[in-house]
Design a protein around this nucleic acid. Structure first.
Lengths: 209, 209
DNA sequence: TAGATTGTTAATCGATTAACAATC
DNA sequence: TAGATTGTTAATCGATTAACAATC
């Protein structure tokens, strides 16, 4: 596939994956773009366009085979990869992530957790003993993690990300409100700005009043 | 302002607010769209278009006064509102939200936390004693909360949201992967799908390889 | 006044929707 | 074969960028 896939499409894929998983669990073997569109509150046209970014997964006159499509989307999402991952910052949020997100189901293997707070270093979270942040470099050189989850204060986020880029990290999941700028613009940074999200809600609640 | 503001614009507002806050803290009193664009990695044109959705905040030949613009955006975002809010579900994630997000700085006042797990009901989180979910209805009728934060399992999210809509909730911050459909389509639902976000990252890491 | 920079209109770009020929 | 539904092209819509007149 040579043409670039837009982030709009990529961001819809996990939702397709979830709905197809539900259909599969319900024992549905076949679905048309029209039916799926109704269920997902999208247009059939959009679904066909989205899927055709990656190839023809359907069968004319019939629809899409649920199990086949599910597998294809899983491959596109890359959830069969095993990206070695590290978590930097294990306060309340980092803690919640480890306990709540099933990384392995999404293509990631958590192999280390780091923090700079002596109170938490050495404690165990989700089966991982939290390491001191000073061990980060050595750990990376030895274990070569590919993804980093940043749940640390805004002030240190950019510099930490820069350091990690040099250590070979190929993808960032950033929960700090700091803006991450990397040398290699192709390295994906997925931002989750909780504060911004809450403010958007406030704004949207205001306009309906 | 009669014309509808697009979500694209609304989602950029918190970031403007953050950057202007930084400028203010740095003692910068005046900034041009060009300078701000460079700092934020946007185009000057986009900034001027965005701000003009709400009115002319600048001065031709001069630029924008930082303190004035900051205040105006604060008003647009509605962070001076005091929306009474409740948190439903106080597992690891709910816990992290209460401890990490400064609600009051963003226009929300947390007035109650609910859970159905007998192990956590009665315990105190962020100064709030967690109430049993069975007390929800009575609490709402009495205290009239306007916003709800949903940090509960996917299975119960839609039905809980439907119940809360009937109890007068006017905005939802939804952390479950459940898809919330309300009777009143104008009520904003701000979704934070952490699992989806991580899958998008996986997909984007795959394509650069 | 001359220079700078906004507010605003016009042009471009990209994403969504509609239409329809291909084909199962 | 006839009906259904995809894959794909064309039309529309909306968002971003460029241009420039207004004006401080």
């Amino acid at each position: 596939m040579s043409q670039k896939i837009s982030t709009a499409v990529i961001n819809r894929l996990p939702r397709y994956y979830r709905y197809l998983g539900d259909l599969h669990d319900e024992g549905v073997t076949k679905i048309s773009s029209k039916e799926l569109a109704e269920r997902m509150n999208l247009t059939a046209s959009q679904i066909r366009q989205d899927l055709n970014c990656f190839g023809g997964f359907g069968q004319q006159g019939y629809g899409y085979r649920v199990d086949y499509l599910l597998e294809e989307i899983a491959n596109i999402l890359g959830i069969n990869n095993r990206y070695k991952s590290i978590l930097i910052g294990c306060g309340k949020l980092g803690h919640a992530l480890v306990n709540r997100i099933t990384f392995t189901k999404r293509g990631f293997d958590l192999i280390g957790i780091f923090d700079n707070d002596p109170k938490v270093v050495g404690t165990v979270v989700g089966g991982h003993t939290i390491r001191d942040i000073t061990e980060l470099e050595e750990f990376c050189l030895e274990n070569k993690p590919e993804a980093a989850f940043l749940a640390l204060p805004r002030e240190v986020a950019p510099e930490t990300a820069a350091k990690l880029e040099k250590l070979g990290i190929k993808g960032f999941w950033n929960f700090s409100s700091g803006y991450i700028v990397l040398e290699n613009k192709d390295i994906p940074v997925e931002n989750v700005h909780l504060g911004d999200s809450l403010m958007s809600l406030s704004c949207r609640m205001k306009t309906i009043k």
